[in-house]
Design a protein around this nucleic acid. Structure first.
Lengths: 212, 212, 212, 212
DNA sequence: TATGAATGAGGATTCATTCAT
DNA sequence: AATGAATGAATCCTCATTCAT
């Protein structure tokens, strides 16, 4: 399904730890200097491996970018799913999820920006997979919207769901990739206002919009 | 103020036409293959100039990227300003402006995506200027918001203006950079729904929200 | 027909002289150290060009090997054709040609050995062409054999012509690639004995076999 | 005398079997892709050993090439010696030997070609030894020529013996390394014609030349 | 102004060999 | 005796930029 990154090293435990080193180093370097301006030598040095060793765990520089993107998305999704609440009302659960998502986006600003700026350098099979990961995140919100519509806590048309979900996701990412333009706004302000706008767009009740 | 791109050619008319050739070629190539994978030779060939001639009108590859970004923003801003209406109500003028803006974004999808993906490769002085250009676009909407609040056609807090303006701009750009995810939504649907959400967030009257 | 080696330099005169430099350097280096152990840097340095300049005239290291093989074969064929005599009898003309050919092989020992040892490193399209060049040399002898049979000065079956021609060619090349084993034999001895054997195999008259 | 290939493994039986595995794998790979394009990893995998294990039985990649050449020559020589006849006349024994030799060359085409193309990559001490092995094969024919001269069944000068023997050997190898050029000739034709030419050159009686 | 040949630093990747386990 | 992970030097090729003409 999702394209594999082959490693010539067989021991899976080793592969896991070494790749973690590589990814850690690469995330930092790609964030700082961009994918193209980062050399594989720098990645090797920064990850504590030799030039050659890197290529035991990865087949190309692009593989590294892919692993980096994968890990970032995995982390986002995990954090998001972990934070989902159990409240009875869909609208409340949605509000909660948006809030959590914005926090995750804030915590992972640099990583999100990295994906925005560098994923276009991925070979198309990899790119497809990365976009697919993103869709999975969107789908979390689509589900919550559905729930809210079903239980009556959200009053909006079903057809609008995909776009609403997208708006939520982009809204979160925007905190990362528009940082330069939002420097006067604190995260608290941003979070509060955006939640209000989004919940209103979703047709939530005023009490829910304003957080009870 | 805005950093100059020096040219060793003196005749300003020549500089203008030659740079136009270079920019035309570069826009197409950067859109297609990205900044890093496009070579200056390719730009030279595609623009009908010799390798050396390009460097008579530009000092580096990054200069070209800068000129490209500049031209795109100039075009966006021009089209946007040309389309501003004269209606008495600020809210109506805003609605109109958003609609026009979305059309411009649709027409310039590729160019907007280009700026999103490649502007990080600009030297910081250039990047600053490009971001500044973007702010100018945002400012158009800030002014309209202000007008609407002043004339009472928009009921929202003054402090929210910058973020609302940003939301409008990002909303338009999103049509370009999230194309892959929005393939099921037609531009008409997108435009209508987003305008509604944004106008609602701005505190417009229902009639205005729905276009009279 | 014969595969081209593209050059990014347009001026054909320049291409000719620069490639000559490259080929000269490469022949010497390939002969000395072999194709694989010769680096492109060495070729560049030895030919008086910069690393990059070499790649203006050639697209890969294998292109260089191809040009080298081409030039060697061209030289062999030219020398061979120049030396063809006008004697009335085909057998005499053949004898003369073999003798000349052996002299050429002696003069070009190193080059012939080079082709023998390195041509397998050519991409197949190139290899085919190089083998084709060799066939052209063989064909010279096939024609002479034919002539001799026709005018009655050679008494042998037509069907044997291809193999006889091959024997002649291999016989000459052998002087190059079996040098190590023939060190006790002078070129004069070699030449005389081989000519005798070959002419006898072709069914020449004793006088012709022994050179009148 | 003949240079040793040291092994860090002591058990000679083990060394023999493991090296056999290595050589088998290497012969196939070298024939297919050439010495330089074959990696030691490939040899390890194909021989069922680990990367490291190969180096317990061999000290370098070139050692492997040497062992490969050795084994090929050993096989050629064995087959040749086994086929030597007991006929009273030297000329007949020679004819028989040539015929057998050609058959061996036909059976071992690929291996012979391998030696021709790759032996130049041997370190000089190894190369010398490989050439020496070849001389031993030549010497078989020298002896037969001597015998024939002595018993009067061959009428040729003693001084010509070395070159005649070489001609015989090259003639056989030619069937391997000129395959591409001889594709129209069947082995039977080739064999018959070459034997005739060679026996004639050796001064055999017509009956012997034509096989009684 | 324009040309296009020349430069040369730089970078991804490979692979024979070693060595800790 | 065997494994397979690690090493790091070595190599081909690219390409932004310069400069003689």
């Amino acid at each position: 399904m999702s394209p594999n990154v082959p490693s010539s090293v067989k021991n899976p435990e080793k592969v896991r730890t070494r790749r973690a080193q590589i990814i850690d180093a690469a995330v930092a370097l790609f964030s700082q200097k961009g994918f193209h301006k980062t050399t594989t030598r720098e990645i090797a040095r920064a990850s504590g491996l030799s030039n050659g060793a890197v290529y035991e765990y990865v087949q190309s520089k692009e593989d590294i970018l892919y692993l980096v993107c994968k890990r970032i998305h995995k982390s986002v999704e995990e954090q998001l799913r972990l934070s989902l609440s159990e409240h009875a009302l869909g609208a409340v659960r949605l509000r909660h999820a948006i809030k959590s998502f914005l926090h995750v986006m804030d915590a992972m600003k640099d990583d999100i920006l990295l994906i925005y700026q560098e994923s276009k350098s991925l070979p198309s099979a990899f790119l497809k997979e990365v976009l697919h990961d993103e869709e999975n995140i969107t789908r979390v919100f689509e589900q919550l919207l559905m729930d809210g519509i079903e239980d009556g806590s959200l009053r909006t048309a079903r057809e609008g769901i995909p776009l609403l979900a997208h708006n939520i996701v982009v809204c979160g990412q925007m905190w990362a990739f528009r940082r330069w333009a939002l420097h006067d706004v604190t995260f608290e302000q941003f979070s509060e206002m955006q939640i209000r706008m989004l919940m209103q767009a979703c047709g939530a009740d005023p009490q829910v919009i304003h957080g009870e």
